[in-house]
């Protein structure tokens, strides 16, 4: 296995983990307003996916978006500043936690209405095909999104028009606080691909290498054959739905079981077993510095000028 790849995957996952932990702390200090949905536990999905994307590929997701933004190369400074509502944020304090963007890196948000970004993703893929571009579109969604109308309409159009899009269900087993068995008659969520029809896959979302392989296969199908795919990735969030949720609807044992398979600990142990403990420790220190720098940057950045409250409504 490629040591450089492993260290990069480790670095990227750890950056997200530490970013989210600091965000939680700042939220508790009331420095972050609104909703804050943390990605802790699901890092292997965003990172494994981003590691097989080309610069031509679009990535779009729902409101639990910090991990995807960082994995796609979004700046930790600009992300943290956005959480604090600062003008130096990735959306200049207009978007907040649920609406991160880095359009130059083709990270297209950051959308707050469950399932509503799926037709949008099909639209990015439509444009890629229309323009005969080589890229494809990856669209992440939660297991809570599979029962809402836009899921069906987007899947339907993607299959009908052969759009180069990959829909990835991040099945963390809870739609907010409602367990999967109350929202789906089966725990095999990729079955939903069959009726459109569309290629499907199921992957262990805690295994960053399995994620890479599954996404890569789907991307190849999208790029070379203009065919969409539905992937179900089984994963888990260690925290509640948002910071407002103490997650009392599940047992400590269940959370601990998932933590034993934690993708970051797993990869960290792998690095150590390869004799790369010194390198790993160095990465840990570098990430710590990057996060502290991001927090400092965010805290020291100015608020948006109130006189600009009505900016960015229209293209003039």
């Amino acid at each position: 296995m490629d040591n450089e790849l492993i260290t990069e995957l480790y670095r990227s996952m750890l950056l997200i983990r530490r970013f989210e932990e600091e965000a939680a702390r700042l939220y508790q200090e009331r420095k972050i307003g609104g909703f804050l949905h943390l990605y802790i536990g699901q890092e292997a999905l965003a990172v494994g996916t981003a590691s097989v994307l080309d610069s031509e590929d679009y990535l779009v997701t729902a409101y639990r978006c910090h991990g995807h933004y960082l994995a796609r190369g979004g700046s930790a400074r600009a992300g943290m500043a956005e959480l604090l509502g600062k003008v130096t944020g990735c959306a200049e304090g207009r978007g907040g936690s649920m609406h991160f963007y880095d359009v130059e890196k083709k990270f297209m948000g950051g959308w707050g209405i469950v399932g509503a970004h799926m037709p949008l993703a099909a639209g990015f893929a439509f444009a890629q095909k229309y323009n005969q571009e080589s890229g494809a579109t990856i669209c992440f969604l939660g297991d809570g999104a599979i029962n809402i109308g836009p899921f069906h309409e987007a899947m339907s159009l993607a299959a009908l028009w052969n759009l180069p899009v990959v829909f990835v269900i991040e099945n963390n087993y809870f739609a907010m606080g409602t367990p999967l068995h109350k929202t789906s008659p089966t725990d095999d969520l990729s079955l939903r691909a069959l009726g459109y029809p569309m290629a499907r896959d199921t992957v262990d979302g805690h295994d960053v290498f399995a994620v890479r392989a599954s996404i890569h296969a789907a991307l190849t199908r999208a790029r070379e054959q203009h065919l969409p795919t539905l992937i179900e990735a089984k994963t888990y969030r260690y925290r509640g739905h948002s910071m407002a949720d103490p997650a009392k609807y599940r047992t400590k044992e269940e959370v601990e079981d998932w933590r034993k398979r934690d993708p970051i600990l797993t990869l960290g142990a792998k690095l150590e077993s390869f004799g790369l403990k010194t390198l790993r420790d160095q990465i840990d220190r570098e990430i710590e510095e990057e996060i502290l720098d991001a927090v400092k940057f965010a805290e020291e950045s100015p608020e948006p000028d109130p006189s600009t409250a009505e900016k960015y409504v229209y293209v003039e």
Binding site: P119, L120, A122, G123, F124, F126, A127, Y130, P150, L157
Partner: peptide, 13 residues
């Protein structure tokens, strides 16, 4: 909902 959303995505792209 589907084709309006596809249009919006295509416009952003």
């Amino acid at each position: 909902c589907g084709f309006a959303g596809v249009g919006i995505g295509a416009a952003m792209a």
